[in-house]
């Protein structure tokens, strides 16, 4: 079954970039089931599509990524969440992992860093 992916980031440029990188030959086929620009929209989409993989920004309007991770992890424990955030301090990464994220990659990232992080998330 093709893994399904939801991309959550308040930047359209970043959402587009992640979607493009998901077509990298090193990755298995991914079905992008939705994109959201804030945590609230992400929560609704996650309930609807039940994605197996999620890339999640942290600094977003309406509902931030940390709260969204906690709620999605509670409702969809099978979803694997990769945080993609500019927040570069260790405490933020630790908090996100404690709330249910499975990986953390810092912005800015290059193509290889994101593909490697997605591969690790799927394995």
């Amino acid at each position: 079954m093709t893994p399904s992916l939801m991309i959550v980031d308040d930047s359209m440029v970043i959402r587009n970039r992640i979607a493009r990188l998901c077509q990298d030959a090193r990755l298995p086929a991914l079905d992008i089931v939705g994109t959201a620009s804030n945590g609230l929209g992400a929560l609704s989409l996650a309930r609807l599509h039940r994605p197996s993989l999620i890339t999640m920004d942290l600094t977003m309007p309406l509902m931030d990524g940390e709260e969204c991770i906690e709620r999605i992890a509670g409702e969809l424990p099978e979803a694997r969440i990769l945080v993609v955030s500019a927040l570069s301090d260790k405490m933020t990464a630790l908090r996100a992992i404690r709330k249910g994220a499975h990986g953390f990659i810092r912005k800015p990232f290059n193509d290889d860093q994101l593909v490697d992080a997605l591969l690790e998330l799927m394995n």
């Binding site: 930047s11 970043i14 600094t59 500019a86 927040l87 570069s88 301090d89 933020t92 810092r106």
Partner: peptide, 12 residues
């Protein structure tokens, strides 16, 4: 997004 990335990096 760049302003966000510079600010986030400063948290290191």
């Amino acid at each position: 997004e760049i302003a966000n990335i510079f600010s986030g990096r400063a948290r290191r």
